[in-house]
Computed example of a mutant assay.
Amino acid sequence: MKLCKTEEAVGQILCHDITQIIPGVVKDAVFRKGHVIKEEDIPVLLSVGKEHIYVWENDDTMLHENEAAEVLYEICRGEAMHGSEVKEGKIELIADCDGVLKIDREKLLAVNSLGQMMIAARHGDFPVKAGEKIAGTRIIPLVIEKEKMERAKQVTEGGPIFSILPYVQKKIGLVTTGSEVYKRRIQDKFSPVIKEKLAEYGMEVAMHEICSDDHEQITAVIRAMLDAGMDMVICTGGMSVDPDDRTPLAIKNTGAEIVTYGAPVLPGAMFLLAYYEGERPVVGLPGCVMYAKRTIFDLVLPRLLAGEKIKAEEFYALGEGGLCLSCPVCTFPNCGFGKGGY
């Protein structure tokens, strides 16, 4: 690549897109990379402020921005996503299916630390829908050393930076607890909320039982659902430290392994997650899920429906970003709730 005066560029090959910006009308390339500059192009180039331009000269040690962008795309792209057309050294990744976005954060940091290239992504561990943008990549200079792009490949060996875990249809059991509901003293208002949240991901409740606060009864119902082949059991209510709230004990007595009872998230501090036989989630939901717009359940549910096994340390890390501000107009997931550092 070499710099030359625009008036002297006739016959030269343009090595980058030339963008024309007319506010409110257009922002697009008036000439594309590879265009052979003609005499009639000179006034147009001057009109967009290009008194000097870069034209191509062979250099085996360098890559053009668009060629380098293709390298970035390949190290980013997992299954169920595609790239946009390369333009001015930029490629965007677009989801091909609904699911949970996973990011190899170490690789993402490693590439962005190399300099002269960048990858900007939406938050990982959150839902994406088919057609939505996942990430944008760009090469900063017009040309970049081939050696630097080889280093980008090396630091991302072993798999792509981005992947999408698609949702898996699950048979879900719902256990509503509380003697006041069991004895019909009050109406069950918890179950409709859970069914509505499941419907957001195309899921339905396959079995539903209402139990009193008798922990032995709750345990028996959970076990019956698991024996009937439920892939996940959700228990609502009875999660506080009150003497009558026995759901945590009931879940423990099923033999399920408790991952966490309590999480640094508000609303949702009394949340419980366990796994039965190492793979089927048993969830205990605190009462806030019934009345708060968004809670820890919204952070965890999509990951469980995608078949992901969540570790205890991932709950500990939710403290930063774990406070929902209960905004008058909820914009979740386009807000800071559940989006901590790493």
Results as ranks from 00 to 15, higher is better:
151 R>Q: 15
184 R>F: 03
18 I>T: 01
2 K>T: 13
321 G>F: 00
31 F>G: 02
275 Y>F: 03
320 E>P: 09
65 E>R: 05
282 V>L: 09
95 A>Y: 05
227 D>G: 01
176 T>N: 05
299 L>P: 05
192 P>K: 02
215 H>K: 04
104 D>Y: 07
99 G>E: 01
267 P>F: 08
189 K>H: 01
148 K>N: 08
83 G>A: 15
78 G>T: 08
107 K>R: 06
217 Q>W: 00
297 F>H: 14
157 E>S: 14
94 I>K: 10
281 P>I: 11
101 L>K: 01
8 E>D: 15
147 E>Y: 11
280 R>W: 09
85 E>K: 14
41 D>A: 13
69 A>I: 12
214 D>R: 05
13 I>S: 07
101 L>E: 10
35 H>M: 07
191 S>L: 05
216 E>L: 13
224 A>S: 14
131 G>P: 14
270 M>H: 02
130 A>T: 09
224 A>G: 14
79 E>W: 07
113 S>F: 08
92 E>T: 13
284 G>A: 04
293 K>R: 14
40 E>D: 15
329 V>I: 13
32 R>P: 00
196 E>Q: 10
187 Q>S: 01
142 L>R: 14
246 R>T: 13
66 N>L: 09
34 G>W: 09
217 Q>Y: 00
247 T>G: 00
224 A>E: 14
318 L>T: 09
312 A>V: 02
271 F>E: 00
203 M>P: 08
45 L>N: 10
291 Y>C: 11
33 K>G: 07
144 I>A: 11
110 A>H: 07
55 V>N: 06
309 K>Q: 10
305 L>Q: 00
254 T>F: 12
127 P>D: 09
59 D>F: 02
236 T>N: 02
149 M>T: 01
